[in-house]
Deep mutational scan, measured.
Amino acid sequence: MGSVRTNRYSIVSSEEDGMKLATMAVANGFGNGKSKVHTRQQCRSRFVKKDGHCNVQFINVGEKGQRYLADIFTTCVDIRWRWMLVIFCLAFVLSWLFFGCVFWLIALLHGDLDTDYKDDDDKSKVSKACVSEVNSFTAAFLFSIETQTTIGYGFRCVTDECPIAVFMVVFQSIVGCIIDAFIIGAVMAKMAKPKKRNETLVFSHNAVIAMRDGKLCLMWRVGNLRKSHLVEAHVRAQLLKSRITSEGEYIPLDQIDINVGFDSGIDRIFLVSPITIVHEIDEDSPLYDLSKQDIDNADFEIVVILEGMVEATAMTTQCRSSYLANEILWGHRYEPVLFEEKHYYKVDYSRFHKTYEVPNTPLCSARDLAEKKYILSNANSFCYENEVALTSKEEEEDSENGVPESTSTDSPPGIDLHNQASVPLEPRPLRRESEIGSRR
């Protein structure tokens, strides 16, 4: 089982795998120059863009038009607004034209077009017409509009002379109601789609790998820009990579689940303020055997998904993003964004995407760390350097704002901070800030 798991979770494809794949392509008759073999020097295209759209195009789909027309309502909801407006206008105009032609044909076959009612006051002739005051196609078209929109100006009306005319008036009224219901329903469904809710759900630009509770963890940050909550919010993550099976089958995008606390339930989050999602790199993680150097040379993509129900409509929305291997910062942490004021908490989104480097973060893999092949620094050293990194950030910001350097908390000259780390230190809580992250 261990060997199978290692093969499945191998992220960085070796040169031997690339040569094996190329040999397979030639042997199977696919070596026509169009096949692409992804190596370390040639990274694959992003499968999920940063804005959440999937970078996929469908080609050679059989009976595409028929399949889309069979699900016309979903098609109308998914198309762009400009095409929705075109369909909206065409549906009414074509129905008016169709029934206008029908009423014109009825008048033509009944002989109503030969009668001039402007110079004739004989009401008996008017009563013999199928539709009064309809003696041309324009008049028939206007009567069709008046019937379907129930305008009723009063000059044109159907008589009991022709039952077919009466039937067409009733039929057009029913068709008009159906068109109204369909168009209004599609427009309302399109307006109520929770897709735009994703514009106020954000992911951090970069993911980070750092120590948390004595273990290497992959972390990324999510935030909600609205005050309205995302009900039943939960997160998922998958690692996408290519691999070759033991039988020699090439899988271009193998999807591997990344555990973010599904078993323990901590994948469900209360997204009021930005939260750091934590994936513990343990023996079940696809990143277990990867060191910093392996991450730098790897070719994979981590897709992160945030799902929840919109509070206003109770409709489920899904926000997506992805991180390539070069977008994962090893040995970094996110800057705090949640600050405790006197009577409330304040979230500073200008710090949302910012990170700071944490010294002495192990550069080895989580496996080597678990097997004690890498000796961690003293816990006080880690905490102290973590505090120094934050303090230096604040000093830089104070210097930019014009604060005198004498007010900063610099260490005395001639003292090495790293050498001082081995000395037991008193706890130094942050002056006014605390970061709330997901705790395992």
Rank of each mutant, 00 (worst) to 15 (best):
V358F: 03
T138D: 02
C217N: 11
D120G: 01
Y68Q: 11
F382A: 12
D348E: 07
F103D: 00
K118Q: 02
T407P: 08
V337M: 12
A207F: 02
V37H: 08
D112Y: 01
E301C: 03
D78W: 09
D296N: 08
T409R: 12
P362Y: 00
R432S: 15
N326P: 05
A107I: 03
S14K: 09
D416F: 06
F92A: 12
Y334G: 01
S411D: 13
N297S: 14
K227D: 08
T147L: 02
K36G: 10
F88V: 12
V169C: 00
R236Y: 08
T115N: 03
Q293S: 14
H234V: 09
I277D: 00
W104N: 03
G214H: 14
M168Q: 01
C157R: 04
K292N: 05
Y345W: 07
F182S: 05
I375W: 06
V272W: 11
W220Y: 07
V337Q: 00
K125L: 15
T276M: 09
S95D: 02
L324C: 11
N206V: 07
I266M: 12
W330Q: 00
V166S: 01
T245D: 11
M168K: 00
I258H: 00
E307T: 11
E340R: 05
V208L: 09
L218C: 13
V4K: 08
I269F: 09
Q42S: 08
F47W: 06
E301L: 02
G62S: 12
V272E: 10
A370W: 05
E340N: 10
K190G: 04
S381H: 06
F270Y: 11
K128Q: 14
E387A: 02
R8Y: 08
L417N: 14
E433Y: 07
L390D: 15
S95M: 15
N401W: 06
T74R: 10
R268P: 05
I375K: 12
I258K: 01
A379N: 08
Q238C: 08
H38C: 08
T6H: 08
V77R: 09
G265N: 11
P427V: 08
F92G: 05
T407Y: 10
D294W: 01
C43R: 05
N198V: 09
L363C: 13
S204G: 04
W96K: 00
C319S: 11
E247S: 12
H353A: 05
K50P: 08
E357A: 08
S350M: 07
T74F: 04
G248N: 14
Q318T: 08
S434D: 15
G2F: 02
L417G: 14
L425Y: 14
L306D: 00
S13Q: 10
V12Q: 11
P252N: 15
E311G: 04
D180W: 14
K393T: 14
P286K: 00
F88K: 01
T39R: 08
G261V: 04
F92Q: 07
K354E: 11
V169R: 02
A298W: 05
D267T: 07
R212A: 05
I269W: 05
M84Y: 15
R320L: 12
F103I: 14
N297K: 04
P404G: 07
L109M: 11
V93T: 04
L225P: 04
S173D: 03
D294G: 09
K193S: 05
R431D: 14
F99K: 01
N224W: 04
N297W: 04
P413Q: 11
A22K: 13
K195E: 06
N326T: 13
E146D: 02
K227S: 07
C383W: 05
N419H: 10
Y374A: 14
M188Q: 11
G308P: 07
A207V: 01
V388M: 06
E435V: 11
N380Y: 04
V423C: 14
M24P: 13
D17N: 04
V310C: 12
D257I: 04
I106D: 01
E161A: 10
V222T: 02
V347Q: 05
R320K: 12
F270W: 09
N198K: 13
V48R: 01
S406I: 10
N401V: 13
E405M: 07
S422A: 13
G29N: 13
C364V: 11
V208A: 04
S10M: 10
E400F: 10
G331E: 00
A233Q: 07
Q420G: 13
I415N: 13
Q293I: 09
P362A: 01
R197H: 11
E280K: 12
K373N: 10
I375D: 14
A189T: 05
K64T: 11
S408C: 12
E161V: 04
E249C: 11
E340P: 07
R432M: 11
W81S: 02
P412C: 13
R67Y: 04
F47A: 12
S377W: 06
S406Q: 13
N297A: 12
T391C: 10
D282W: 02
K64Q: 07
F167P: 02
T75P: 15
I79D: 12
E133M: 12
F137H: 02
D299W: 06
R431A: 12
E385Q: 04
L338W: 06
L69H: 13
P286D: 01
R320E: 12
P194R: 04
G331Q: 02
A22Y: 04
A25D: 06
R320M: 06
E249N: 12
T75E: 07
F270E: 07
L253N: 12
S321A: 13
L329I: 10
I258D: 01
S350G: 11
D254M: 10
L142M: 08
V158S: 02
V56E: 06
A237M: 02
G2A: 11
S377G: 12
Y384V: 15
N224F: 05
A312Q: 11
I174C: 06
I11Y: 12
K49A: 06
T391Q: 11
R367Y: 01
G31Y: 06
Y356P: 00
F352W: 06
A389V: 14
D116T: 15
M191V: 10
D410Y: 03
T407H: 10
S173I: 15
V337F: 06
Y356F: 14
E327S: 00
P424S: 14
S95I: 14
D160C: 07
M188F: 07
E311F: 05
F30D: 15
D114G: 15
K372F: 06
L338F: 06
A325Q: 06
F300N: 00
C162H: 01
D282K: 10
H279K: 00
V303R: 02
D368I: 09
I72N: 14
S124C: 05
L287V: 01
T317H: 13
R212H: 12
I251Y: 14
S95Q: 09
F339P: 02
I79L: 10
Y374M: 11
D116L: 15
S392C: 08
S242K: 15
I183E: 05
V175A: 07
L109P: 02
S95Y: 02
S399K: 12
H279Y: 01
P274I: 02
D294M: 06
S350C: 09
T159S: 12
L216W: 01
I151M: 07
M168P: 01
I375V: 13
G33E: 07
A207I: 00
E161S: 05
E249K: 15
E335N: 03
M84Q: 06
G62K: 15
Y344T: 10
V170W: 04
Y356H: 14
G414K: 07
G111M: 02
T200P: 14
I281R: 00
R46P: 03
K354H: 12
T355H: 03
H53T: 04
I302D: 01
L218T: 02
G29R: 07
V272N: 07
V303I: 12
P413A: 12
Y384M: 15
I209K: 01
L290Y: 10
G100W: 00
L230F: 04
V347H: 04
K354N: 12
P429Y: 07
V403N: 12
L216C: 00
D160S: 09
G308Q: 05
P286Y: 02
N419W: 06
R226L: 14
T6I: 08
P274W: 11
G2N: 05
E247R: 06
H205E: 15
S399E: 13
W96V: 15
N326A: 11
I302P: 01
I436N: 03
D416M: 06
P413E: 14
H343F: 04
Q293V: 12
V388G: 15
S273W: 06
V231F: 11
P336A: 15
E394S: 14
F73A: 14
E15K: 03
L90Y: 03
I277C: 10
A140D: 01
N380R: 09
S350P: 02
K118D: 01
N360Q: 11
M219P: 01
R351M: 06
S10D: 15
A233N: 05
H353N: 08
F73P: 15
L369K: 02
L109Q: 15
E340L: 06
L271A: 04
T138I: 04
V260T: 06
Q148S: 07
V131F: 06
F99W: 04
A298V: 08
T39P: 12
